[in-house]
Design a protein around this nucleic acid. Structure first.
Length: 584
DNA sequence: ATTTTATGTCGCC
DNA sequence: TGGCGACCCTAAAA
């Protein structure tokens, strides 16, 4: 069923009415380069539908006007003259009339955003009211003691081996490592398929194509029987699938009438408004209690008793698109009315939904929320307002986050939402990984790093880039035991740099320091280097510097390929930036 | 070979 | 309040 289509206009060119008489290209005071060519093109496009077989139809257009009108270049964002937004080489120039694309504050652009170059990288310590309660006491006693006082050094690779495999024909939307088999990675895609890849035995890869009909949003292993996988999808179903056979059980379907029926009803009787199709965006399980919870885009929370396979649902009100946090509070009877689990539901638009225990206010849509991996005492959220937030002490005051970290993950359409995730190996529960939306100029090429952020300080510990990985990487997963990161590509790679290593479309990437034992031809091995720095600005400067002087690096320059350089802790300004590099 | 279409979100009018 | 266009967006389908 096609959505109501609007005619998508071609990029409209505004003909400058100021100087339509003067056709010469030298009349303008600024930006007088490609005026002639622009003029011809735009005339072609303004008439018919621009079937521009010949983009450079010099003058021979059938409706060529007698007067060639010169154009004032206007900003494509605000349509004003005098500046232009867009890429200039690998640098994107923001429209100065818009708020900063990074921090969303007016008055400056991304290039000069203080959060872009600050060492603290946008950390805003929150105001904390120091009022001790009984809950705080419980927190201190039961959970705080588990958190090490001294934070370990993060293990961030500065050299990478990479395995690449193409499993999916659509973008990867979720990743999960197997809970016990160290080298097995699960991946879900936009199409609803599930991929299984054992990257130590590259031949062992499987794709199951009929588990869901669209985006696989969540995957959770049945830890009691870890060949079984729970998955939730935007098709509104939860499946319980045997990974050895691909045979699954449909545990729940919240669209029993199907997509077409709902949509037909929608257009027949309502003619506008949101679809009634329900999509599952959040899921978590607690197998000790045999519980599975899932959340849909209308803000409903569904509870499934996994073991008995009794599906039931409990509505929490028609709020929209909240996310769900679920975690058992072992031995803590904090919520007498609900001793089994604690669920937080929040919705930035409709906060009146009654039954949540706490509401974490965000400026815009919340993409994800995760309890910290060991104690569960902290919550890490990613919001569309370009901020990562850490909420300390789920027992305490959650009115304000304890950290706000400005980070570019505000996404447009066609991208899987970015989700900052804890490093499950970090005992101090402070390291998080998240892909970055905004691009950065790395030696002349615009790349989108995967950021490692110390949420306790807000420092950008590392930004991981790859010259061949020119895609945005919204989906990332750190291995629960090994120093391995898996990431899913958001789109195909179209790059002239790929001479040797043809990165396939919609791949799953594995970075691992120290060597990846793979022999399969489909799994490429490549040694790369990542940036480790605390400020992107200086990273670029250093990059350019090390092109000149520094060498002896074990990475030879090969022809036209962009080379990545390793950065030591060279401070570039007053000892300000101190890199944290740990080679492993 | 090009255009359309996806059901994403927000600001603006 | 809702329709509409724009977005550092992609790419399969038509």
């Amino acid at each position: 069923m096609p959505a109501p289509s609007r005619p998508r206009k071609r990029p409209t060119i505004i003909v400058g009415s100021v100087d339509n008489s003067s056709s010469s290209s030298s009349s303008d005071d600024e930006e007088d380069e490609e005026e002639v060519e622009d003029t011809v093109d735009d005339e072609d496009e303004e008439k018919g539908k621009g079937r521009n077989g010949s983009l450079s139809g010099k003058g021979a257009g059938k409706k060529a006007p007698a007067i060639i009108i010169s154009l004032k270049k206007v900003c494509k964002v605000c349509k004003e003259e005098g500046h232009q937004a867009g890429f200039q080489g690998a640098n994107y120039i923001d429209c100065p009339r818009k708020p900063c694309f990074l921090c969303k504050m007016p008055g400056h652009t991304t290039m000069s955003c203080p959060h872009r170059v600050a060492l603290e990288h946008g950390v805003v310590p929150a105001l904390r009211k120091n009022k001790q309660t009984q809950l705080d006491y419980v927190f201190e006693r039961q959970l705080m003691s588990q958190i090490p006082k001294i934070k370990p050094t993060f293990v961030i690779p500065d050299k990478l081996d990479r395995g690449v495999v193409k499993l999916h024909s659509r973008r990867v939307t979720s990743l999960e490592f197997h809970p016990t088999m160290n080298s097995v990675l699960l991946s879900g895609d936009k199409k609803g398929q599930i991929g299984i890849w054992d990257y130590s035995k590259p031949n062992e890869k499987t794709v199951y194509g009929s588990i869901h009909s669209c985006i696989v949003n969540n995957m959770k292993f049945d830890t009691r029987n870890d060949i079984m996988l729970y998955t939730s999808s935007s098709d509104g179903t939860i499946s319980y699938t045997d990974l050895e056979t691909g045979i699954g059980v449909l545990l729940m379907d919240i669209n029993p009438n199907g997509w077409n029926v709902d949509t037909l009803l929608l257009y027949a009787f309502i003619s506008t408004g949101p679809s009634t199709w329900r999509m599952l965006y959040g899921m978590d399980i607690n197998l000790d209690k045999g519980l599975l919870l899932a959340a849909d885009n209308f803000g409903y929370l569904y509870l499934i008793l996994c073991y008995e396979r009794e599906a039931g649902s409990s509505g929490t009100g028609p709020a929209r698109a909240g996310l769900v946090l679920v975690r058992l509070l072992y031995g803590c009877c904090l919520k007498p009315w609900d001793p089994l689990f604690e669920a937080h539901i929040w919705d930035i638009r409709r906060l009146e939904t009654q039954s949540f225990l706490a509401s974490l206010a965000h400026g815009r849509v919340v993409n994800s929320a995760y309890f910290s991996p060991h104690t569960g005492s902290k919550i890490l959220t990613t919001s569309q307002d370009n901020r990562i937030r850490v909420w300390d002490s789920v027992f305490g005051n959650l009115n304000l986050p304890s950290r706000e970290i400005v980070h570019s993950h505000d996404f447009n359409r066609h991208l899987t939402p970015f989700k900052a995730e804890w490093d499950p190996k970090d005992p101090s529960e402070s390291l998080a990984v998240i892909g970055r939306y905004i691009s950065e100029n790395y030696n002349g090429v615009a790349l989108h790093p995967i950021d490692f952020i110390d949420t306790s300080t807000g420092h950008l510990v590392a930004e991981l880039i790859d010259p061949d990985l020119t895609t945005i990487s919204p989906v990332n997963k750190l291995h629960p035991r090994d120093d391995i990161l898996a990431t899913g590509s958001s789109r195909s790679v179209i790059s002239q740099l790929q001479v040797l290593n043809l990165l396939p479309v919609k791949s799953v990437f594995i970075w691992r320091p120290g060597g990846l034992k793979v022999e399969d031809k489909e799994v490429e091995r490549k040694k790369e280097i990542i940036f480790c720095n605390t400020g992107k600005k200086s990273a670029k400067e250093k990059f350019n510097e090390s092109d000149d002087d520094d060498d002896g690096d074990d990475f030879p320059s090969k022809g036209k390929n962009k080379q990545q350089k390793k950065y030591g802790g060279k401070s570039d300004k007053a000892g300000s930036s101190k890199s944290k590099i740990v080679k492993i």
